[in-house]
């Protein structure tokens, strides 16, 4: 990056670090922090949407819908989340290809599962094998986002379902006494009031989501963990751009500090949001706030 980096005598001096830290590969490493933040920015609203849908479904009067919502919410209990991450990526991928196969190649007569192989026609591959590399990466990332959203949607559904039940029953009964329909009660009375009860759970969930991002690595996305392993390792030491030993410790230390800082910042921001939303609410915290001001 810098012009003085072309001078080989620099290798033994501290100035070499300036060159090392600005090489193309290291830039990819920095960019992968962006990948993680992008994943968070996209996943959080989708997961919240899934969770909201699940909580609403679980409260539904239609029995099959209510079962579906409850089973989805209960899904994450009892089973490690990492299992879902590993499961959904393959399952979604195969599901999509299976559907495309059925639509695009109706006259294909061989079975799709042949022993240990999963074979679909070339036109059903996702993305097409002729597609540029960038699309493969986008597809992988999209699968990862969907997987995260499904798993965290279940967590969010749990929180929101609890929050909906925490809204005082008298409020809902009053709404019905005024002649509101079931739908009106839900949207006008229940939803606006449930957020303050959901907030502690949702802030916790955000922290959990932040801390789950390294699992991206398992889904085959080139994220920070991938680059830290790749760049820190000494396996290329012989032929290489970087004549250094095993530096993974330092890379992972960097990641550790990144996550600690990120958690701390999130904590501060979430505390402020809580304080603002609590303002004027008929809860113990709202009461405490009112007394402190007076």
């Amino acid at each position: 990056m810098f012009s003085f980096c072309t001078d080989p005598s620099l290798l033994a001096t501290p100035a070499w670090f300036a060159c090392y830290l600005t090489t193309g590969k290291l830039m990819l490493f920095y960019a992968s922090f962006g990948t993680v933040l992008l994943l968070l920015a996209i996943t959080a609203p989708i997961a919240l949407g899934f969770g909201f849908g699940a909580a609403a479904a679980a409260r539904s009067r239609i029995l099959p819908l209510s079962w579906f919502g409850k089973i989805y919410i209960a899904m994450v209990r009892g089973v490690p989340d990492i299992v879902f991450f590993l499961f959904f990526v393959i399952a979604l991928d195969q599901g999509i290809e299976y559907l495309r196969h059925k639509i695009k190649c109706p006259d294909w007569d061989e079975p799709i599962r042949q022993g240990s192989d999963f074979i679909v026609c070339a036109a059903a591959k996702m993305p097409l094998s002729t597609a540029p590399q960038a699309w493969h990466e986008v597809y992988g990332f999209a699968l990862a986002v969907l997987t995260f959203a499904i798993v965290f949607g279940a967590f969010a559904g749990n929180v929101l379902f609890g929050a909906m039940r925490a809204v005082p029953q008298a409020q809902l009964e009053t709404a019905e006494a005024y002649g509101m329909t079931h739908r009106q009660t839900f949207w006008r009375i229940l939803v606006p009031q449930m957020w303050i009860y959901a907030l502690p759970g949702l802030s916790n969930l955000w922290m959990v989501l932040v801390k789950a991002t390294p699992l991206l690595f398992l889904l085959g996305v080139e994220d920070i963990v991938y680059w830290a392993k790749e760049l820190g390792g000494a396996k290329t030491a012989r032929f290489t751009d970087y004549p250094h030993g095993d530096w993974r410790v330092w890379y992972f230390l960097g990641l550790l500090i990144f996550y600690l800082a990120f958690t701390r910042v999130s904590e501060i921001v979430l505390d402020r949001i809580t304080a603002r939303l609590t303002h004027g609410q008929a809860t113990a915290a709202g009461e405490a706030q009112r007394k402190a001001a007076a």
Partner: peptide, 8 residues
């Protein structure tokens, strides 16, 4: 920090 990173 994530347990994943701690173990790594």
């Amino acid at each position: 920090s994530p347990l994943f990173i701690q173990i790594f």
